[in-house]
Computed example of a mutant assay.
Amino acid sequence: MFEYHGWITVRQSADADSEESALPRIVDELRLHIDGLAAPYLLDLRWMNGEPFLHIGGHANHRTAPHPVALYEHVAAVAPGSYGLLHIRDDEDPGHANQMRVVRLARGAVTHHTEPLLSPCVPELESPFPGQGGS
């Protein structure tokens, strides 16, 4: 099972005084990139209250292609002031099959972490199968 839910606040720069003058062009480029992904799940880029936000989510039997982390890496490259989180549950990920993972986008960098509030998935989110231990 491959489940993911995420959001990104799209920003041109992390500088508070930045004019964000290239932001409309960046958002247009991101929209073209997203349109080319042909993802079957939630993939939404929209302006709200004068700022662009990207929302993504999906649930498949196996890892999807393109992998949603690749989108976060693309945003980090074209809009390094952006920030957001992506939660991933992948029961086929070696070493992390019982963990909810968090991908963090901040200041042009993408990092991977274990989500302590939702891990280990069994027993935090689901009960163990009968006869099976907790974690």
Score class of each variant (00 low, 15 high):
E3V: 11
H5A: 09
G6Q: 12
I8S: 06
V10T: 01
R11I: 00
D17M: 04
E19D: 11
S21W: 04
S21I: 12
P24L: 07
R25Y: 02
I26E: 01
V27F: 04
E29T: 02
E29P: 01
L30Q: 01
L30M: 09
L32W: 03
L32K: 14
L32D: 14
H33A: 05
H33G: 00
L37H: 02
A39I: 05
L42C: 06
D44W: 12
W47N: 10
M48W: 07
M48A: 13
G50H: 05
E51G: 09
E51K: 15
L54S: 05
H55T: 14
H55V: 13
I56C: 12
G57H: 07
H59K: 12
H59N: 11
N61Q: 10
A65N: 07
P68S: 06
A70L: 14
A70H: 12
L71I: 14
E73L: 02
A76F: 11
A79L: 11
P80N: 06
P80M: 07
S82P: 02
S82N: 07
S82T: 10
Y83R: 10
Y83V: 02
L85Y: 09
L85K: 10
L85M: 08
I88G: 03
D93S: 08
D93A: 03
G95L: 00
H96F: 15
H96G: 00
A97Q: 04
N98L: 10
M100I: 13
M100G: 03
R101P: 03
V102W: 00
V103I: 15
V103D: 03
V103W: 11
L105M: 08
A106I: 06
V110Y: 08
V110S: 09
H112W: 11
H113E: 15
E115N: 15
V122M: 05
E124K: 14
E124H: 12
L125C: 14
E126T: 09
F129N: 01
G131R: 06
G131I: 04
G131A: 09
G131N: 09
G134C: 00
